[in-house]
């Protein structure tokens, strides 16, 4: 199982670094950040937080684009290019394939995250002359854990929806929606009329709360690190949802006809 999954994952990672997407996104992020870093605001060169905020925003957008688009095309591309046939003719089950694709996309986005956060470290350190490494590591870790959840979710979407593009669009809206309003849904619900109120509350408790993993504000405003216990609980919470999505993916994919 692990052997096969790792072999599949290796292919996904190779694909990521042989395609141009990552480089394009990284160069764009770096370019925009550096350009904004050159802007002079009232002759004060110690202003840093706006730059950190924008750099982190770009990193988040880029990482979500990489994770979602890479994952969304994996299984559809295997089917479209018919590479799935020689693969499944080997001693490799559909479950191995799903898990391998998950690991591959997750590791690949993790690798790109490391590059992005290293860049962020350099930028913020150059401006502020301080390196709060613990909270940076926490941010990287939580971000990566979040991507596990995202990748598993998109993987499920990729076998439910026909086209990778519609899948990525739907997933994107879902993810960004949760990040923006997920935390407020309960408060919104209690201001609503009854039938809708229950529906919104149920949604609130059912969705994966991706906003936990976004500690950009803490970094931007130089606040102290998160408690390790909170990080741990958040990690367990994400693993739960990831496992749920992976199992659902496997169950749907197991019965899926490959020739249709």
């Amino acid at each position: 199982m692990i052997n096969n999954a790792l072999a599949v994952a290796g292919i996904v990672i190779k694909e990521l670094y042989r395609r141009k997407d990552f480089y394009v996104l990284f160069v764009l992020t770096a370019l925009i950040t550096l350009l904004l870093g050159c802007v002079n605001f009232f002759n004060d060169d110690r202003i840093a937080r706006y730059l950190k905020e924008i750099c982190l925003l770009l990193i988040w957008i880029s990482s979500l684009i990489i994770a979602v688009t890479t994952t969304a095309r994996q299984i559809p591309a295997e089917r479209e290019n018919r590479t799935i046939f020689p693969l499944l003719a080997k001693p490799l089950t559909r479950g191995h394939l799903v898990f391998g694709k998950f690991l591959g996309c997750w590791f690949a986005s993790g690798l790109s995250l490391v590059v992005f956060y290293f860049f962020f470290c350099v930028v913020s350190g150059a401006r502020e002359h301080q390196w709060p490494l613990l909270i940076y590591l926490q941010a990287l870790w939580l971000h990566w854990i979040l991507l596990a959840l995202v990748v598993a979710m998109v993987l499920l979407g990729s076998i439910m929806f026909a086209a990778p593009s519609s899948n990525s669009t739907i997933c994107f809206i879902f993810i960004v929606g949760i990040l923006l309003v997920g935390r407020h849904l309960h408060r919104i619900a209690i201001q609503l009329q009854e039938p809708i109120r229950t529906i919104v509350s149920v949604i609130y408790f059912a969705i994966p709360h991706l906003e936990f993993y976004d500690i950009r504000e803490m970094i931007v405003h130089n606040l102290p690190p998160i408690s390790m216990l909170a990080c741990l609980i958040a990690t367990v919470y994400a693993i739960g949802y990831t496992a749920f999505f992976l199992i659902a993916t496997w169950l749907v994919f197991r019965r899926k006809s490959l020739t249709a």
Binding site: F41, F42, D44, E211, F212, M218
Partner: peptide
């Protein structure tokens, strides 16, 4: 639990950090 992950304490900028407002 979510309040662990974003600023949930009231505070003001001081000691020259007010400069951070200026770009906006």
């Amino acid at each position: 639990f979510g309040r662990n992950f974003f600023p949930s304490q009231h505070s003001h900028l001081e000691t020259g950090n007010e400069r951070e407002l200026l770009p906006w």
